[in-house]
Design a protein around this nucleic acid. Structure first.
Length: 386
DNA sequence: AAATGAGGCAACCGCCCCGTG
DNA sequence: GCACGGGGCGGTTGCCTCATT
């Protein structure tokens, strides 16, 4: 028994707007700025009459707000906008207007269309349920998925996944992760990886599949570290790399420059003092200046269970790391730092065409200086150890 | 070259919320 | 408290374009 559509009134035009109609509406709106509940004293219903249009008010409002408004941003949505949509959709669902209010110049209609035609499919392709924003269980194709089924509550997986997708602009939920034990933490990582469709290999040679995955989803920074984590998970589950496994020359854990979750010292120490068969050979490779770890917030997301949250300042944080190192008698054991050890123990390899640290760092705009400082610190630290 | 299919997107439809009398 | 109407919102439709057969 609903009200009849406003456009049912005889003589009113429907369908695509012509240039002349647009012109009339724009002229009217520029002059009077009507509609919007009558702040101007003119309701949308009156707009077509006054503008000389044979349209209903609703049609005029839609045309104006979705297309003619001068502050409408045209063109493809940026990566950042896309990410924002995914994040917000995970939070609020199909509240297109709410999402649009966070994207200046974009309309709810545009976002809705973009979601339905692009993002939904994209997430599905990645094995992610676009409604729940959780990985879709696919039992094939993944060592992890066949050896462990997550027992984590779905909302926890969702929260974790959302955090991952929020990338480096949103603080990682440390409280959440610290409440987990390492097994759960690793389980989460494995779920995420499976959701990405990332194929992890225990091969000691570079894995094209994994690097391809990274290429396909370039906004998921830190994929290499995830892969390393996943391998470590496999390792824990009983398929450790053999002692004869060699550590490849071009091991590179590359991240952008954001955040200071933990500094390089941790990684380095773990590499050197854990009880893993790769330690010795990795030590050899880390002495080469062309190999380095750029460690950031992203990778530290996975240093979850047994590490402290980052402190408020870099210096404090470095001190914490030193202190922790001392407390352990100068040794870190992989049981204490289970996830980061994976970076060292994992046979997963990421190769890069970049020859030097500077090549990478030069590409980091925002955190150029920060990254440079981090790198110097790391280099100094390595030299101290050596 | 024509037919067909798929994808993208502007526009419409109908329900809901909220202000007003 | 209730009815009414305007505006807003999310779901859906259908046209247009482009790719494929």
């Amino acid at each position: 028994m609903g009200r009849s559509a406003c456009c049912d009134v005889n003589g009113l035009k429907k369908g695509p707007w012509t240039e002349e109609e647009d012109e009339k509406l724009v002229k009217y709106m520029e002059r009077y700025g009507g509609g919007g509940g009558g702040r101007s004293g003119i309701s949308w219903r009156q707009v077509p009459k006054l503008a000389g249009l044979k349209r209903c008010g609703k049609s005029c409002r839609l045309r104006w707000t979705n297309y003619l408004r001068p502050d409408i941003k045209r063109g493809n949505l940026s990566h950042q906008e896309e990410q924002t949509i995914i994040n917000l959709h995970a939070l609020v669902g199909n509240k297109w207007s709410a999402i649009a209010s966070n994207l200046p110049g974009r309309t709810d209609n545009e976002i809705k269309n973009f979601w339905n035609t692009h993002l939904k499919k994209k997430l599905l392709r990645m094995g992610i349920d676009p409604v729940a924003h959780t990985p879709i269980t696919t039992p094939h194709n993944h060592h992890i998925s066949t050896t462990a089924t997550s027992t984590l509550p779905p909302q926890l997986l969702a929260a974790t996944y959302n955090n991952l997708m929020s990338n480096y602009t949103t603080p990682w939920d440390w409280a959440l992760l610290q409440s987990l034990n390492s097994v759960h933490a690793i389980q989460i990582v494995s779920e995420i990886l499976r959701g990405q469709g990332l194929v992890i290999s225990n091969s000691t040679t570079p894995t094209p599949t994994a690097t391809n995955s990274y290429d396909h989803y370039p906004y998921i920074l830190g994929m290499e570290m995830e892969a390393a984590v996943a391998n470590y998970y496999n390792y824990l589950l009983g398929s450790p790399p053999s002692s004869s496994t060699s550590v490849p020359d071009h091991q590179l854990v590359y991240h952008h420059g954001h955040g200071l979750g933990y500094d390089y010292a941790d990684l380095t120490m773990i590499n050197r003092h854990s009880n893993c068969p790769q330690d010795t050979s990795l030590d050899n490779t880390t002495t080469a200046t062309s190999h380095y770890y750029h460690h950031d917030e992203y990778s530290s997301k996975f240093a979850i269970a047994n590490m402290k949250a980052p402190s408020s300042t870099d210096d404090d944080h470095k001190m914490q790391n030193e202190l922790y190192h001392d407390q352990q008698g100068g040794h870190h054991h992989h049981h204490q730092l289970p996830v980061l050890v994976s970076a060292a123990t994992s046979p997963y390899v990421v190769t890069s065409t970049h020859d030097t640290a500077n090549d990478l760092i030069a590409g980091m705009d925002d955190d150029h200086q920060e990254a440079t400082n981090e790198q110097s610190y790391w280099k100094r630290h390595i030299m101290d150890i050596e």
